[in-house]
Amino acid sequence: MSDNLDISHVARLARLKLSEEEAAEFTPQLQTIISHIDSLSELDVSGVEPSAHSSPVFAIPRLDEPGVSLSQESLEQIAPAFTQEQVRVPRVVES
């Protein structure tokens, strides 16, 4: 399957803008790794249930009780851009 690796497609999905040098460096490395992980294909896993976790822990919601949360001031201090009590980002919707 490693021959099918289209690194620019995967980088786009991952929201990474790779340089040409990085793409050239990573492609053979990832192909080698993918060839290795392909060894799982020799195992017959029919009838085996997948495990997302090692223990039977599933999302356990907390009680819906109001509590103290992070303050806007503390978030403003770490936000790259903050205006009018909101995180500012480039325009998302075309005018």
Partner: peptide
């Protein structure tokens, strides 16, 4: 890959 690996994790 992903589901297969989760099954091998079970094994």
């Amino acid at each position: 890959y992903y589901i297969k690996a989760q099954k091998v994790r079970t094994l």
